[in-house]
Nucleic acid binder design. Structure first.
Lengths: 125, 125, 125, 125
DNA sequence: GTGGTCTAGACCACG
DNA sequence: GTGGTCTAGACCACC
């Protein structure tokens, strides 16, 4: 149900793109605790990249404490960490939005136009 | 009146940090057409960086058409390009804000909290 | 009376954790010669691990000569091997302590503080 | 003045062996802040290993906050972090010694023999 | 089957 | 010169 896509032309390294997508999937609550994430080999096959690239993405998540690998079984979500990560992400997003909004205002964008942008997606779900 | 600061630990390369700060200064209307931007030598002295770093930042701005070097006189703002650049920046900011707002909503942040963030800085200018 | 606990996140593989705990139990004189160690099936049930994991731990102990399986009866401690194993373990512990103490001293820990640590547990047994 | 040695037969992966040695050198105060650590290529030449192996060791130290790489310049010690790391290491060593001492005592080693081991190296400096 | 390590070597971006 | 990324593929340990 969850799909991944990598773009070699992106500024972000492939492993970081993959890590980001995995992080979002995990944070959003897909991949319940009992089911392992897709195996390294599976992703290698799907994404046509080197095992190292996938491994590095998984290592990233592991270092963040989001996920734990178990020898011979696969990589599993550490549910305790998920909500904390989501909360951190929310704070970070709000700060970023604040900062960008300030920049936009400084460049003369009327506040209501910015608010409009924030509300824009509302009707599209 | 305009100062620059570089952080070697930032993800952005030094030259890009500098280019960004110069770009913002120019876009915001500092450095009127008659006054040259600081010389490479000056910035090298101020920022304690490699001349290549400063040169590359200036080259960036030049390629964007924002500034033009004049032999023996220094580097000057191309006023006709400033408004176009500012407009492009505004569009970019609004798109970024939209994208981040969507992500925040997906993580369960109520829309009004996001709008709040956008309005937050109102009284602080 | 003897319980085992495995931590999948530990650096040590599960089978090694189990082997270590069994080894310590045997060396410490629990499991007298007449009583068999818990069966593979029992441990699998208790620890919720793969039978291979338990088998490998038992194989380890067997190869060290500490225990011997008897067809249809279970796995028994080889009492004559226990004292030799304990002695080896003692030597190993002293070497480790020596090594760590040297490292601590190199980092500036006063020798008396280290001695203190060694004596610390005295009254707690 | 500082030399490194890797043993492929060791249980520890090569990158971890190297990371440990670098960590100790940094913690012990060699490699003052102004001088970069040996470059990846230098160590590759010295140790006859793959660049990836060296890189992974350096990445480890970076993630611990001990060291920071600067593009095009080399890898530098973060002096602020060194003392904190040394203190953490001291605590860890004392805990390990305590634990091992307890085990030794449980196996019947007289406390004075353990204390002797701790003091053993005294006259060798 | 799973994840983990290592090699040999190319290519890029930065200063 | 520096560090960073990626590839293609081998080998190992664990469950």
């Amino acid at each position: 149900m969850t799909s991944f896509s990598l773009d070699p032309r992106d500024d972000l390294p492939l492993y970081a793109q993959l890590a980001r997508q995995l992080r979002e999937a995990v944070t959003a609550g897909r991949w319940p605790a009992g089911r392992p994430l897709p195996s390294v080999r599976t992703l290698v096959g799907l994404l046509k990249v080197n095992p190292q690239t996938v491994l590095r993405a998984y290592r990233e998540l592991e270092e963040e404490g989001l996920v734990e690998p178990r020898q011979g079984q696969g990589t599993f979500v550490r549910t305790e960490a998920v909500e904390a990560a989501a909360e951190a992400r929310r704070r970070e997003l709000l700060e970023d939005i604040e900062r960008l909004a300030r920049q936009a205002r400084d460049l003369g964008v009327p506040e209501e136009v910015i608010v409009q942008a924030v509300r824009k997606e509302k009707g599209e779900s």
